[in-house]
């Protein structure tokens, strides 16, 4: 019960400030003071208090998009263990369900984008579809590297087996898995070098342009869903890199530190890199798939622990 309470607390408190932390890191790197850490939260609260504008072209799909996206992101975040090796919704083979829940959200976000009939939103949806399809094998391969040694396709079991196997540095396959998962995180959450969340030109956007027409509570749902998705994928990455104990007070501390590390790393990447030319992104993602595939080979060559 305590674990569930910690899980829910982290789920409610952390995702939006993590985005704030990324922005703060970027501001500091650019020599600015930057918005408060809680700015994303303020934005969402404000959006929830607003009315909404709907395009005359749209149908119920446009309304359903944010709702389904948020619902699937919440479920996905309930499946991944956070500051523990168990989670409220964990069950055998939950890694596959996790990945497909993210897919549900993506499907409806893209459909809602096409519902507006705008060429820009269609463009965003098309890019999202292409990059997500290429990121998918990398995600699954990386998860397999974690799950196969644990004999279980359940996040909880897989994560608890990592420290026993010696953790990241004793396990070169795991290192490659973390690398591939990092790329997947950047691609799935539309960060640099795949997409630039701060761009102001619709023609170059991916995620932002898909949600151009949403407003008010709908847009707030989208923002929360996005933050949860980032948080959930980040949590997987944290568990790969840091040995989070199953219980005890160290677990939440380590987890929060790890997630902060993820946010800071993303912020640094965004500060020092430019986004890739769109036609180069597939190569980047295929590279992640290949890295993960080599990780699988290494895993099997080294003898499964």
């Amino acid at each position: 019960m305590f674990d569930v309470a910690v899980h829910i607390t982290l789920l409610v408190l952390m995702p939006l400030p993590m985005l704030g932390l990324i922005n703060r890191v970027k501001s500091i790197a650019a020599g600015r003071k930057g918005p408060p850490l809680l700015q994303p939260l303020y934005d969402v609260v404000k959006l929830l208090q607003k009315g909404a504008v709907y395009s005359r072209t749209t149908t119920w799909i446009f309304v359903a998009g944010p709702i389904v996206t948020l619902a699937s992101a919440i479920l996905a975040a309930l499946i991944v263990p956070l500051a523990s090796t168990t989670s409220p919704f964990g069950f055998p083979a939950d890694v596959f369900v996790f990945a497909y829940l993210l897919g549900v959200g993506r499907f409806f976000t893209m459909a809602a984008a096409l519902d507006t009939g705008s060429a820009f939103e269609g463009m965003g949806a098309s890019r999202e579809a292409a990059f997500a399809a290429l990121a998918e094998p990398a995600l699954f391969l990386a998860l397999m590297i974690v799950c196969v040694p644990a004999d279980s396709a359940c996040f909880g079991d897989a994560f608890s087996a990592i420290p026993a196997a010696g953790g990241l540095l004793r396990h070169p396959g795991l290192l490659l898995a973390a690398l591939a998962l990092g790329v997947v995180l950047l691609a799935e959450t539309s960060r640099i070098p795949v997409d630039d969340p701060n761009t102001h030109l619709e023609l170059t956007m991916i995620h932002e342009v898909m949600v151009l027409d949403h407003s008010g509570p709908d847009f707030a749902f989208i923002q929360i869903g996005y933050a949860l998705k980032f948080f959930a994928l980040g949590a997987v990455l944290v568990h790969l890199v840091l040995p989070i104990p199953a219980t005890g007070w160290m677990a939440p501390v380590l987890f929060v530190a790890g997630q902060a590390g993820v946010a800071i790393t993303v912020g640094i990447i965004e500060s020092v890199m430019a986004r890739l030319r769109l036609s180069r992104v597939p190569q980047f993602l295929i590279g992640a798939c290949v890295v993960a595939a080599v990780g699988v080979l290494v895993l099997f060559t080294g003898g499964r622990p």
Binding site: T57, M110, L114, G122, A125, A132, A133, M144
Partner: peptide
């Protein structure tokens, strides 16, 4: 194990294809 990434890729591409089919045929103007 090769089945896993293959199925993931197929699923991602199928999802792209049906967003396209549904979106272009039924949504917009």
């Amino acid at each position: 194990l090769a089945v896993v990434p293959a199925l993931a890729l197929i699923g991602g591409l199928a999802s792209a294809c049906f967003v396209k089919a549904f979106g272009v045929v039924f949504l917009g103007e």
